[in-house]
Design a binder for these strands. Structure first.
Length: 487
RNA sequence: GGCCCCAUCGUCUAAUGGUUAGGACAGCGGGUUUUCAAUCCGUUAACGGGAGUUCAAUUCUCCCUGGGGCUGCCA
């Protein structure tokens, strides 16, 4: 299957865009086909410099590298590859010109000289009459001589498609099923703007035909323009591709996902520290389900499980809490060594000692099951690299029934027990043994020993366990941190 | 206003012409546990309304209601 993703470079990659791209990419992978990236830069007024590059990079970050079209070269720069290029629509103006001429010649399109002022007036009048705003075909009445004369004089104009109003257009969408549109409700859409650039409608039809796309995936917001595209394919005498419109992503209030209410840029999620695995997993489950109870999907598992007939039709509200849950799941799936390697630079940035820390992976392991985002790591490991600020209020703990007066006594017991472990034997096992026997002989509850120890070592209300933390600090360091509370 | 689309727990969703309407996240309760997290167990919670077809409708049909999308020389 040849699928494609055609973003317009007007900003960051949208979350909904990523999901559409994901579905298209999955279909290509599943069928051992081709996933093409095309840049739809036909609106000069909205174009943002660097946006295309950004979008490609984001796609690559997500694991959805294009097979054809616009992609990144070895140096990370934007390049194009493929036999149906160019893949930037702005470089294809001559192509669109050729095909509009063809449409003009076959009377499927016509020149329109109406000014935007006139069109505005016309629409207002129609609205006032409670009619659907539609082009009134003033310029369709123009004689051939008149048109030629005005063209020759260089008058500004657009080219519109001439919609056969008597027709009924029937299509079957891969997701929405059979659809029917009446011709008289379809406007004579502008195909070519006065600046010589095509509109989306023309560019889509021409390019997807020329680029041999056989499955078009796009958002549901395109459903109402579908008949125009079909009409265009027919006017050209081309076989249309199959279409799979994807249901919309929604805000909490069920309106179309918007910046106003949500983070919509994939970049926002990257910046917050989400893993591509988590975001992809999350997006895949929005509007699609595997038909089983499996919730965790790698890209490869998605390729195997995905199919359009399990994509459903209604929009999906973003459930960010589920995203966070998935993020946690994927965080914990990372192999320990890799996890340590990922967080090391972050920790070292704050605590240079971490870069040469021989115990770094063991320390990292301690936080892997409690972390949600990588950037939390430096803070979660800080007490390994600097002496924490500890307050007596923290060590004393009413829930554990430890009063402030108990603290020196308890910590000196701990000090005594840990002193007996030799430097050489300092390990999780020995530390645990020493403390457990202390607990047994002292007659105190575990928490009464371990809470104060952990608090004194970390200065934190929450942290990994006392045994683990103590064993991964040096014996001297542990005794130092305890000592100051005794007397 | 017109055209088009959609409708199961709060959210993502499954299933079925006959089920105790299932799962996940969140919530709640509990276990484990030195704290938190993680983990385990349990639990609250849904077929928008009305007709029709049928022995039987959440499921099929129609209407209503609700929601959404489009209605640009944007994509």
């Amino acid at each position: 299957m040849r699928t494609r993703f055609p973003p317009s470079p007007t900003g960051f990659l949208h979350l909904g865009g990523l999901r559409t791209a994901l579905f298209a990419w999955l279909l290509a992978r599943k069928t051992k086909g081709t996933f093409t990236l095309r840049i739809e830069d036909t609106d000069k007024t909205r174009e943002v410099a660097g946006a295309a590059k950004n979008i490609v990079r984001t796609l690559v970050w997500a694991g959805l590298s294009p097979d054809e079209g616009v992609m990144l070269d070895a140096a990370g720069q934007v390049t194009e590859r493929g036999e149906y290029g160019p893949y930037h629509q702005s470089k294809r103006l001559d192509v669109y010109k050729k095909y509009t001429d063809q449409l003009l010649a076959s009377r499927h399109a016509y020149h329109c000289f109406c000014t935007s002022e006139r069109l505005d007036q016309m629409r207002k009048a129609q609205e006032a009459r409670k009619q659907a705003p539609m082009y009134d075909r003033t310029c369709l009445e123009l004689s051939e001589e008149e048109v030629q004369k005005r063209l020759a004089s260089g008058e500004k104009h657009v080219i519109r498609m001439k919609v056969p109003r008597e027709e009924t257009i029937c299509v079957t969408d891969e997701i929405y099923g059979p659809l029917v549109f009446k011709g008289h409700t379809i406007d004579d859409q502008v195909l070519m703007k006065s600046d010589g650039f095509p509109t989306y409608h023309l560019a889509h039809v021409v390019d997807d035909h020329l680029m041999k796309t056989d499955m078009v995936n796009r958002g549901e917001e395109w459903l109402s323009s579908l008949p125009k595209h079909l009409l265009l394919f027919r006017a050209f005498g081309w076989e249309p591709p199959r279409y799979a419109h994807v249901p919309l992503l929604l805000n909490k209030d069920r309106t179309k996902l918007s910046k106003r209410q949500n983070d919509v840029a994939v970049e926002d999620y990257i910046r917050k520290g989400y893993l591509p695995e988590a975001l992809i997993n999350f997006l895949a489950l929005l509007g699609w389900n595997p038909g089983t109870t499996q919730e965790l999907f790698s890209l490869q598992e998605l390729i195997d499980a995905f199919s359009l007939d399990r994509v459903h039709k209604s929009g999906a509200v973003l459930d960010l809490e589920k995203l966070d849950w998935l993020q946690g799941q994927w965080m914990r799936k990372i192999p320990v060594q890799e996890f340590a390697a990922r967080i090391k630079p972050l920790v070292a940035e704050k605590f240079p000692a971490a870069s040469t820390d021989s115990k770094f992976s063991e320390r990292a392991t301690l936080i892997q099951e409690r972390i949600t985002f990588f950037p939390e790591a430096p803070d979660m490991l800080s007490y390994f690299y600097e002496t924490p600020k500890v307050s007596l209020d923290l060590i004393a703990n009413s829930k554990q029934k430890i009063s402030k007066e108990d603290v020196p006594k308890i910590l000196s017991l701990i000090q005594e027990a840990l002193s007996r472990v030799s430097d050489a034997a300092w390990s999780l096992r020995e530390v645990t043994t020493a403390l457990e026997s202390l607990i047994a002989t002292s007659g105190m509850k575990k928490g009464q020993i371990l809470w104060p120890l952990r608090a004194a070592l970390t200065g934190r209300e929450y942290s990994p366990g006392a045994y683990e933390v103590a064993s991964l600090l040096s014996k001297t360091e542990v005794l130092d941190r305890i000592k100051k509370w005794i007397v």
